[in-house]
């Protein structure tokens, strides 16, 4: 059985080792880029079917962001939408035989969480200024400062491990079942994997929205679990 936690470089470009997730991500980028370029080349006031789906997707993301943040979703639309779309496509790329989802490797998840982390800082400082943003760590009292800093870091790790664990375990379980019984048996597990992949993409995007919203909003940041279970 392969070690699911380590990756081997496929080839090197100069000194840079290129691993399998990077190649798959390039493929996804190419597919998404070409698709969106072609699909949005001839936009009309009277929409075609593809355009209707795209508009539904964009407006749904805007609606979700607006619901969570109670504000104009315009600055966050592209970030949240890209995160959701990329994770979704990456998770579902396991349907193609021989391809492992990039999100099954912790480096991709860490990259996503890092981007979210930077975005939280970026939008928080951009909205409140450096002093204002740092002051939110002292809420409700200065005693909470260490706890708030720890929370900031742990929730980023939580993002990484949640996505990584879900996708990786799905891939791992399917590979185990495949080694036991190759035909038909993994199909329900793969279906479950699709559902998990979609739900995890949604959760990652929503949590990113909640974190950014908490950094931007006037109220002190709520616990993410509370926001989700509401």
């Amino acid at each position: 059985m392969d070690n699911p936690l380590s990756i081997e470089p496929l080839f090197h470009i100069g000194p840079v080792p290129i691993t399998q997730p990077v190649v798959v991500t390039w493929a996804i980028m190419l597919a998404l880029g070409v698709f969106s370029f072609v699909a949005t080349r001839h936009l009309r006031i009277i929409p075609t079917k593809t355009q209707t789906v795209l508009e539904l997707f964009v407006s749904t993301i805007e609606g979700q962001v607006r619901d969570v943040m109670n504000g104009d979703p315009k600055p966050y639309r592209a970030l949240i939408g890209t995160i959701f779309l990329f994770i979704l496509v990456a998770n579902w790329s396991s349907l193609i035989p021989g391809i492992e989802p990039p999100t099954a490797h912790i480096e991709t998840d860490a990259a996503l969480a890092l981007i979210v982390f930077v975005a939280i800082l970026w939008f928080g400082i951009g909205t409140r200024g450096i002093k204002g943003y740092l002051a939110t760590f002292a809420e409700p009292t200065w005693v909470m400062i260490p706890l708030n800093i720890v929370e900031q870091i742990t929730r980023t790790f939580s993002l990484i491990v949640r996505l990584f664990g879900n996708v990786m375990s799905g891939v791992f379980v399917i590979s185990i079942v495949l080694s036991l019984a190759g035909l038909f048996v993994p199909i329900p597990l793969m279906a479950l994997d699709l559902l998990t992949g979609a739900v995890q993409a949604y959760i990652f995007a929503i949590l990113a929205t909640v974190f950014i919203g908490a950094a931007v909003a006037e109220t002190p940041s709520p616990k993410p679990q509370e926001d989700i279970s509401q």
Partner: peptide, 27 residues
Amino acid sequence: RTLFVGLAMIETMAIYALVIALLVLFA
């Protein structure tokens, strides 16, 4: 819809345990 999201959140706890197990096994 909320139930599915909540279940995924709860399931994450089990996934954490699985990750630890895998770490112990493979790393």
